[in-house]
Amino acid sequence: MNIKKVFEEGNEVKLLITGTNIALINAIRRTAMSEVPVLAIEDLAIHRNDSVLFDEYIGARLGLLPLKTDLKTYKLGDKVKLVLKEKGPKMVLSSDIKCSDPSVEVVNKEVPIVKLRDNEEIFIEMQAEANIGKEHVKWQPALVAYNEMPKLEGKVSEREAKEVIKSCPKKILEFKAGKIIIEKPYECDLCGYCEIASKGKLKLVPSNNSFIFTIETYGGLTNQEILEKSVEVLEAKCKEFESEIKGKIK
């Protein structure tokens, strides 16, 4: 297997993974999304809420905030306390949430929670818990997706190639050494305009052993941490299977 980073922007990373199969890639995708623990607010005690939003409404909003998590200190089921105490008039932002552990903080600092009028007060004690995406989406650490690497098969003359390159709506084709190459395969959405423009001489085929793997973290963990942890979780599951199956079938 060979992994190459082909694109990086903000929280998003695209990897080109060659020499593997769809089963493994999908197993990693699924564990990354639903089995990697991350912190999210779970329980809350609302001592005071004078605002126009209901307690449940505020609770749901707080739960969805991604929290920066250190996986070395927070294992599955670990808890940490947070407090939100504000007085109006003001727009209460996610950065107003104080945590007892300074390493834990809200990722997006300017998410509005609730608006308070003169003399309105809000006082909420919260408990964040490390849990997995299978339990609730708020514990999903990232968006993960893959698609098969597209390849153009067949031959065309230089004149035809010009037509084909012009037909691509994303402008990602190039003519190199008598062949048409997809210059940025991660941008190709398999629209098939190149096939039509070549009048059947070219064929757009998805590869069965190379993939473009996209991971976009919500910020609680880094992309690197998520992938490493998902492999760890997958390994532990396989080990468990191995120890359970030993000696069961003769």
Binding site: L53, R61, L64, L65, P66, S94, V107, N108, K109, E110, V111, P112, V114, K115, V137, Q140, L143, E216, Y218, G219
Partner: peptide, 20 residues
């Protein structure tokens, strides 16, 4: 009422972008 914290479909946090 007030901008949702996350996108309903993909879950990206968009609440902090609304006022900008």
């Amino acid at each position: 009422m007030i901008i949702p914290v996350r996108c309903f479909s993909c879950g990206k946090v968009i609440g902090d972008l609304y006022y900008k």
